[in-house]
């Protein structure tokens, strides 16, 4: 019962912080917008060309934007000492981390997937492709944040932590990238994206089962 109390408290606090600090979700969105609008300048504005790269650009942009939020998971808490409340809690640390990642995924995943169709317009993608892309961003953000929580936990308040987090996490997100963008590509080619969606869901479940445990171990290592 107190486990439920503790995890609820973690989620509530995270959402309160999101409500307090608009920049926590507004900045990743701005970053996403800017990254997506850089590419046409580099490759040219012909809509046929843009249609081909659009899915990839948007998906990578969303992954990068989500990744920028990873230091938020533990760094601020380590600075003000609240992390010790979590570490010293009698409840399992993995559950508390899961609650925190869940709250962040919820806020960030919804925000990023909500704006994805808008960016799809920039790249002349048809509506059904945009919708599929949006759904896959929603599924990819939790996977990325779960995997990323391990690196974020290892690099709590380490110098150069943000860039090293990216180096550690991005290669691990390649399967998510392949199948997330792949599902939208299938829709673009008029094929069924069922296999990609199933695999995408499988990755999320696998990450859900393993990552919080690894992140808890990581946090104990780095704060020891």
């Amino acid at each position: 019962m107190s486990l439920r109390g503790a995890t609820t408290a973690v989620i509530r606090r995270e959402l309160q912080l999101f409500a307090q600090r608009k920049s926590d979700w507004a900045n990743p969105l701005m970053f996403f917008l800017i990254v997506c609008s850089l590419f046409p300048f580099a490759v040219g504005s012909e809509s046929e060309k843009l249609k081909l790269i659009g899915i990839g650009v948007i998906f990578v942009g969303a992954l990068l934007a989500a990744m920028l939020s990873l230091p938020k998971l533990f760094d601020e808490d380590a600075r003000d000492g609240s992390l010790e409340l979590m570490l010293a809690s009698p409840e399992p640390l993995a559950a508390l981390i899961l609650a925190r990642v869940a709250a962040l995924s919820l806020a960030l995943g919804i925000a990023l997937s909500a704006v994805t169709p808008v960016f799809a317009l920039f790249y002349a993608l048809p509506f059904d492709v945009a919708a599929m892309l949006s759904l896959n961003v929603l599924m990819a953000v939790p996977t990325l944040l779960l995997v990323g929580s391990i690196a974020a936990a290892l690099l709590v308040s380490a110098r150069g932590g943000a860039i090293l987090t990216a180096v550690l996490v991005l290669p691990l997100t390649i399967p998510t990238l392949i199948f997330g963008a792949g599902a939208a590509l299938k829709v673009l080619y008029g094929e069924s994206p069922a296999a990609e969606l199933a695999l995408q869901a499988a990755f999320m479940l696998l990450a859900l089962a393993l990552c919080p445990l690894a992140a808890a171990a990581a946090l104990k290592i780095s704060t020891d």
Binding site: V147, I150, I178, L210, A214, I221
Partner: peptide, 23 residues
């Protein structure tokens, strides 16, 4: 810390390998 990341990587290597093959 690096041991933990090596393990995480080892679990991911086959997933990455088959994903890339599929792709």
């Amino acid at each position: 810390a690096s041991a933990l990341i090596a393990l995480v990587g080892a679990i991911n290597v086959p997933i990455i390998y088959f994903s890339v093959k599929w792709w």
